[in-house]
Write a protein that binds this DNA or RNA. Structure first.
Lengths: 112, 112
DNA sequence: AAAGAATATGCCTTGACAGGTATATTCCTC
DNA sequence: GAGGAATATACCTGTCAAGGCATATTCTTT
């Protein structure tokens, strides 16, 4: 999870991923489209690959990279764990504050 | 989007977010639970706040932090744009390769 | 086999950022 | 109003990662 996020957090890497979302592409094309130098693209793809975000298939001298779905599925699952709790978040905060105030009131009353 | 990912990519920040998923908490409690020093927690919360991931409400000297739902919703929406394309990704790659091979065959045949 | 295309990798430099520590700030309690 | 609790910020330091550039590697073509 953390690995996925770290890989996606780099701006150029995110651009690469979004480019690959449309279709698999060879390194050179990515570099050209994003106006990045080829070595940097290769390095970014390495990081993405290590994180399991992309796959590669050689075709002649070209290396065609494509997205893998698993990490995105995991990200999705992770996000789920937030969706539920999110709804009553504010209610709880109000609740928490009310309780603290009440506690203080009690203490105050007790003290006097 | 990128801001959200960058904020979440830092391991300790991710831990903080996951801790806040359960309920809003004051800084000190976060520090204690995660065994982090208070200043670092404040800094991380600053980053999370700048990225719009958390909200804050002062209660006496305490600052209670809570998650905001918007960034997570956006992340979710962003993920959607992947889900669809993901299915026929591999088909397309095969397709692409087949085409290239076919093209080469044609060229070869043409040359000879 | 020589030349060229496509890509990966190594080395270097620089900037950003996380942690550590001290200190400032704000509010509460007595 | 003095002391203490909770938090934010400033400053310093070390580390790591991204970009730049040169080069190695692999495959194709002629």
């Amino acid at each position: 999870m953390n690995a996925t996020l770290m890989a996606l957090a780099e701006p150029n890497r995110l651009r690469i991923v979004e480019l690959l979302r449309d279709r698999p592409r060879p390194v050179g094309e990515i570099a050209k489209r994003l106006r990045l130098r080829q070595p940097q693209v290769s390095k970014h793809l390495r990081v993405l690959s290590d994180a399991g975000l992309v796959d590669m298939r050689p075709v002649a001298q070209q290396r065609i990279y494509q997205l893998r779905s698993e990490p995105f599925d995991e990200l999705d699952t992770w996000l789920e764990t937030f969706r539920r709790r999110m709804t009553d978040r504010m209610d709880r905060l109000d609740d928490l504050i009310s309780k603290r105030k009440a506690k203080k009131e009690r203490e105050k009353d007790h003290g006097h």
